[in-house]
Simulated assay, not measured.
Amino acid sequence: MNKNSVIIICLSLLFVLSSCSNTEKLHLTNAEATITNDESIVGSFTPKGKEQKVIPTDLYYKFTVKNNSNKHITQIDEIKIDPNRKLLSVVKNTIGSNIYNIDESKLVWKQGFSEIPSKGKGTFTLNYTLGAEKKSKAYPPLPSKEDLEKLKDNALDGTLVMLENKKEIARFKLQPDK
């Protein structure tokens, strides 16, 4: 066997072994969804000329992602939920629009990121405002408790999508198939 053949076989073997590797760059370790009006999470505002502040109620997601690579992830541009059909139907029936589509939603949404160090974990949050109990021009009336409970029960029926430098870097099902 000549030297070139040995090099080609070694490179081919290295390529096959690296492509068969089961380690993923990123791994979703936790996904939670709650409906909250905790002011420390959702914020508040006081309408002009009013004394009482208005605290909205949000659908609040919290995700923990593990970075299995040797590279820090620092340039997360956006995280978003890609709802499945059932979640989308529940959201549209409860809220009247697709809160997950920024262009279609008439409500406020917020996102929070943390850097994910190499071989470490990062936390990400998404808030989608659903309405407020107090009458306000800023927020629609809050849906019924039954509708909110149905939304909470289905909130993890979708996929988390992460974008870095405007390119998709990860896509995670939020819960196993039912």
Rank of each mutant, 00 (worst) to 15 (best):
A33E: 03
A33M: 02
I35M: 04
I35A: 01
I35L: 03
N37E: 08
D38Q: 10
S40P: 00
V42I: 08
S44A: 12
T46D: 01
T46E: 01
K48Q: 07
G49S: 03
G49K: 12
K50W: 02
E51W: 15
E51C: 04
E51I: 12
K53D: 04
V54T: 14
P56C: 08
T57P: 05
T57F: 06
Y60W: 04
Y60M: 00
K62R: 13
F63D: 02
F63K: 06
F63C: 08
T64C: 02
V65R: 06
N67C: 04
N68A: 15
N68C: 09
I73L: 14
D77H: 14
D77Q: 13
I79F: 01
I79C: 08
K80H: 03
P83T: 14
N84I: 02
N84P: 02
K86M: 09
K86T: 14
L87N: 09
L87V: 12
S89E: 14
V90C: 06
N93L: 10
I95H: 04
I95E: 05
I95K: 05
I99N: 01
I99V: 13
Y100Q: 10
N101W: 03
I102A: 15
D103Q: 15
D103H: 12
D103M: 15
D103C: 06
E104H: 03
K106Y: 11
K106Q: 08
L107A: 08
V108S: 11
W109Q: 15
Q111A: 11
F113E: 09
S114P: 00
E115L: 10
E115G: 02
I116T: 04
K119N: 11
G120I: 02
K121G: 00
K121T: 13
G122W: 05
G122T: 12
T123Y: 02
T125V: 13
T125G: 03
L126R: 05
Y128G: 01
Y128W: 07
T129Y: 00
L130N: 07
L130G: 03
G131R: 07
G131I: 03
G131K: 09
K135V: 14
K135M: 04
K135D: 12
S136K: 07
S136D: 09
K137I: 03
K137H: 02
K137G: 05
A138I: 02
Y139F: 15
P141Q: 07
L142H: 10
E146Q: 13
D147R: 15
D147E: 15
K150P: 05
D153M: 08
N154K: 08
N154I: 14
N154R: 13
A155L: 11
L156Q: 10
D157M: 04
T159F: 09
L160R: 11
L160A: 11
M162Q: 07
E164R: 12
K166Q: 13
K166P: 00
